[in-house]
């Protein structure tokens, strides 16, 4: 399970999952929230592979979805700790986040699972409502990846600069 501080990237590649600019609950498929072996696919951002996300976005288009345009793929972020700490109306924490790495494809792949025994229609509606409430403001996948790339470079620079001692000339 990813640490609580880890953010999870949910790729929303279908523009139909947005009503205007607003994320709809249909972005979180009911079948993926029924528990058992099913889960909602996400990627942990701390080891996220940009190429894997782009491949996924493009691959969905090739899998029979006529209207998928990679440029329209969107990103939302859910914090792993927030997801696991969320409670349903009975005070139960319904979600687990599990690592589901795909070797040589997407090591960052994780799943948000309905860890309860409850699979009723109304309960799944509740889970979707919780997830929409936890999701960040959507942004374009390309923008998300660009910003993340910049942050990684900045972090590398900061890490490097903290280890370098500039010697004053004698």
């Amino acid at each position: 399970m990813p640490e609580a501080a880890v953010d999870l990237h949910r790729l929303i590649w279908s523009p139909d999952d947005f009503d205007g600019d607003t994320l709809t609950t249909s972005a979180f498929p009911k079948n993926d929230l029924m528990g058992g072996e099913r889960y909602l696919s996400v990627s942990r951002t701390d080891i996220l592979n940009a190429d894997a996300e782009l491949r996924t976005a493009s691959g969905q288009g090739a899998s029979g979805s006529a209207n998928v345009v990679r440029d329209e793929a969107m990103s939302v972020i859910l914090n792993s700790g927030d997801v696991c700490a969320a409670k349903d109306d009975k005070g139960v924490q319904p979600f687990d986040v599990t690592a589901e790495p795909k070797p040589n494809e997407n090591e960052a792949h994780c799943g948000i699972r309905n860890s309860t025994e409850t699979q009723s229609r109304g309960y799944v509606n509740q889970l979707r409502a919780i997830l929409v409430g936890l999701a960040s403001q959507p942004q374009k996948l390309d923008d998300f990846l660009s910003i993340r790339h910049f942050e990684l470079i900045s972090n590398d620079f900061l890490a490097l600069s903290s280890t370098v001692t500039i010697m004053a000339p004698q």
Partner: peptide
Amino acid sequence: PTVGLDYEGTFS
């Protein structure tokens, strides 16, 4: 409401 279309062809 916002309107979504689910995999099953139902509206949410």
